[in-house]
Design a protein around this nucleic acid. Structure first.
Length: 117
DNA sequence: GGCATGACAAAGG
DNA sequence: CCCTTTGCCATGC
C-alpha cells in the first residue's frame, strides 16, 4: 500500500479517536478498546486483524494527542492506569473529577465507564 | 533499510 | 491473579 495512503488512513483514524475522547463526560472513563470498537476498521483490513491491533492504534494516537483532548479519561481494559510518564498526574486529574480508585489503584469500569456511541 | 520498542487486549497456562 | 503469546502499525536509531 502506498505510503501516503497509509498515513492518510491513520490520520483519519487518529481524528476519530480524538473526537470520541472529547465526548467522554467529566467524571467518567473509557478504555482503548472501547474507543477502537467505535471506529470502523480501515478499508482493506480484515476485521479479525483489526480486533487484534486496534487498541494499540488508539494508544499510538493518544501518545500524540492534541492539548484539548482529555487523555486522562482513557485507561486500559483492566481499569488501571497505563505505565507512562505523568500517570500520577492522571490519577489526580480523575480524582478531581470525582472518580474513585480502589485500594489497588484501579477504577471500577462498571461504575465510571463510558462507552462511545 | 533492518531491528527493537511501545499510553493495548484477549486468550491460554 | 500473574505471566506469555499473538496480532501487526508507526517511530526512532
Amino acid at each position: 500500500m502506498e505510503r501516503q495512503a497509509k498515513s492518510k488512513r491513520r490520520a483519519r483514524f487518529d481524528a476519530r479517536v480524538y473526537t470520541l475522547c472529547r465526548q467522554i463526560p467529566e467524571g467518567h472513563v473509557t478504555t482503548y478498546g472501547w474507543i477502537a470498537s467505535a471506529i470502523d476498521p480501515p478499508l482493506g483490513m480484515e476485521p479479525f486483524a483489526y480486533d487484534r491491533i486496534k487498541a494499540r492504534w488508539v494508544g499510538y494516537a493518544m501518545a500524540r494527542c492534541p492539548e484539548d483532548v482529555p487523555w486522562h479519561r482513557v485507561i486500559n481494559s483492566k481499569g488501571g492506569l497505563s505505565l507512562r510518564p505523568g500517570h500520577e498526574h492522571q490519577k489526580a486529574l480523575l480524582e478531581d473529577e470525582g472518580v474513585r480508585f480502589t485500594a489497588s489503584g484501579k477504577v471500577n469500569l462498571k461504575q465510571y465507564g463510558w462507552k462511545p456511541s
